[in-house]
Structure formats: structure tokens, C-alpha cells
């Protein structure tokens, strides 16, 4: 009798778990085509229109989640996101992961250094192309992905 009950319970559990996982898989693997997207999603994700149908289910889910949060962002942030969407999408997975790691290390910097980074980037852009090429050719001295701390500014001469 007890063994019958154990068997019945095992079967019921297996069937229930199978049904639950099948339902979950249906949700997790949903991969809508561009024409199936809502007007709002199509408008936000417009830079990805030509690549959308080639994206995997996981990446589509990520972009759709991002589109949902898009209206809550400031207009300049919305503009930056749309401006970089296609370029980001066309990076290799390794490049995206490297950029994410560097972004995380940037977030850990003190606020003043974090805010100064945009200006530093512009200064770097104004370097002669040969110099930038030479810097790029050097091996990374620290762990890849780590945004180094910006050295403190040189002491100014008195009176300046």
C-alpha cells in the first residue's frame, strides 16, 4: 500500500514538474519577430530593426526589458541609448563582456573621478593618432576590464 502511494506520488510529481518546466520553457524561449513587437517596442528599438530577427531569444528578451524601462529615463539618456544601440548589438559577445566589466569597475571609482572620465576621454581623443596607436599596442598592465584609478592632478604652481 505504502509503496503504491510512493509510486503514485513520484509519478504525480514528475508530471507536475514536467508541465511546469514546459510552461517555463515556453516563456523563457519566446522569441518574437520584429512584426510581432508592439508599436512602442518598435519605436524604441528602431535602430535594431534590420538585425532584430537574427538575434537570439535571450538577447531579444534583454532588449525588450530595456525598452520597457526606456520611458522612465531622461531624454538625453534615451538619446544616448538609441544612438549606441546598433553599435552595441554588433559587438562580439567578448567585446560586450569586456565593456561591461570596465563599466562595473568605472562605477566603483569615486564620484569625482567618475565624472571626470568624459573629459579624459575627450582629451585622449585629441592626442595625435600615432600616440593613440602606440598606446593601444601596449599590453594591458592590469587585469583586463579594470578601469584604472585616475592619478591625482599635478600640483599647481603657487599663484596660478
Amino acid at each position: 500500500m505504502a509503496s503504491e502511494r510512493v509510486r503514485a506520488l513520484t509519478r504525480a510529481l514528475a508530471v507536475a514538474a514536467l508541465a511546469a518546466s514546459a510552461a517555463h520553457a515556453q516563456i523563457a524561449l519566446k522569441s518574437p519577430s520584429w512584426s510581432e513587437l508592439s508599436d512602442h517596442d518598435r519605436q524604441v528599438l528602431a535602430p535594431l530593426a534590420s538585425d532584430w530577427n537574427n538575434l537570439g531569444a535571450q538577447r531579444k528578451a534583454k532588449w525588450l526589458g530595456l525598452a520597457k524601462r526606456y520611458p522612465g529615463l531622461a531624454p538625453d539618456q534615451q538619446q544616448r541609448i538609441q544612438g549606441q544601440m546598433r553599435e552595441w548589438s554588433r559587438l562580439t559577445p567578448d567585446q560586450r563582456n569586456a565593456a561591461r566589466e570596465r563599466y562595473k569597475s568605472l562605477k566603483s571609482l569615486p564620484p569625482d573621478q567618475k565624472n571626470a572620465m568624459r573629459q579624459k576621454w575627450q582629451e585622449y581623443q585629441s592626442l595625435p593618432p600615432d600616440k593613440r596607436r602606440e598606446l593601444s599596442a601596449r599590453p594591458p598592465a592590469r587585469a583586463p576590464g579594470a578601469f584604472s584609478r585616475v592619478p591625482p592632478p599635478a600640483p599647481r604652481a603657487p599663484g596660478q
Binding site: L73, Q77, Q78, R80, I81, Q84, M85, E87, W88, L91, Q95, A98, A99, R102, Y103, L106, M117, R118, K120, W121, Y124, L127, R132, R133, E134, L135, S136, A137, R138, P140, A141, F147, S148
Partner: peptide
Amino acid sequence: LASDLPIDAYLDRGFQNW
């Protein structure tokens, strides 16, 4: 993507070295 820095700044090894 919403941050002040462009994507290139996160990927440019020269910038990191600089």
C-alpha cells in the same frame, strides 16, 4: 548605454593605458 562615455571608451585599450 545611457552613461556619459561612448562604447569606444570602454573598449579602447589605448585609453585604459593612457
